[in-house]
């Protein structure tokens, strides 16, 4: 279970006048295993900042984030990194890939980082590539992929270790309607298998897959 207690994030602006602004105002959040939560909101409303804080990628200005009872920001960098590797999957916004590796190698990256490669992992990578329709691109370099293909590769990479919780930031940004539906159905099936899934998205259709729907408005999170 993931729980956030009174987390907020302020950034310093390098412009004249008010030099601090609150990207996310004090917020509590909780998601149980097997739930799919969707967070919608306008651009710049603080959705991504909020997601990054939950994922252990951005230290909150105030508040705490607990994963299975552990305050993740009290961990050392090594411990937090290991926790991210073992328990979380993250699908970032935009085109994200290690350009010197093939699609399959990119997907298996969470395993190879800690030398945990196994044939089962490879088998699962192929399975994910089949499901996401990128199996024929397994040996291709990311520079040769379209935006949608790169995004599907990032999804497979996030899911490869069958994480306990998945964070997805606009996972369908570059995808057409059919692929968008496939991805959300996929996310839904993963949550039904016991993982928590938090999706930040503009897709209004996404709400029909969600167990819980949140809206972020000027840094204030509210549940619909």
């Amino acid at each position: 279970m993931l729980r956030a207690e009174k987390i907020s994030k302020e950034f310093i602006r390098e412009t004249k006048g008010t030099n601090r602004f609150a990207a996310v105002q004090e917020t509590d959040f909780e998601i149980s295993d097997g739930q799919l939560a969707v967070i919608t909101g306008r651009s710049g409303s603080g959705k991504t900042t909020f997601l990054n804080m939950l994922a252990g990628l951005l230290t909150p200005t105030d508040g705490k984030v607990f994963l299975d009872g552990t305050d993740i920001y009290s961990l050392s960098d090594r411990e937090l990194s290991r926790l991210r590797n073992q328990k979380t999957g993250f699908i970032p916004q935009g085109q994200t890939a290690i350009h010197s590796l093939s699609v399959a190698e990119n997907i298996l990256l969470p395993y190879t980082l800690y030398g945990e490669y196994s044939e089962d992992a490879e088998k699962y990578a192929y399975e994910l590539m089949e499901k996401l329709d990128i199996i024929n691109l397994k040996d291709v370099r990311p520079s040769e992929l379209s935006g949608g293909e790169t995004r599907r590769m990032a999804i497979a990479r996030a899911l490869i270790k069958k994480p306990q919780i998945i964070f997805a930031d606009e996972p369908t940004g570059d995808l057409d309607d059919e692929n968008t539906r496939t991805v959300f159905e996929f996310m839904k099936s993963i949550s039904e298998n016991g993982a928590s899934v938090i999706v930040v998205t503009h897709e209004t259709d996404s709400e029909k897959y969600a167990d819980r729907v949140f809206r972020m408005n000027s840094g204030i999170l509210s549940e619909k």
Binding site: A55, L57, D77, R78, S81, R82, R84, N85, Q86, F90, P92, G94, Q95, T96, A97, I98, H99, L109, P110, L113, Y114, R157
Partner: peptide, 16 residues
């Protein structure tokens, strides 16, 4: 930078 971010996201520590 984005590549390094991916490495961090997938579990690479600062040291790694």
């Amino acid at each position: 930078k984005k590549e390094f971010a991916i490495l961090r996201v997938t579990g690479a520590s600062r040291k790694k």
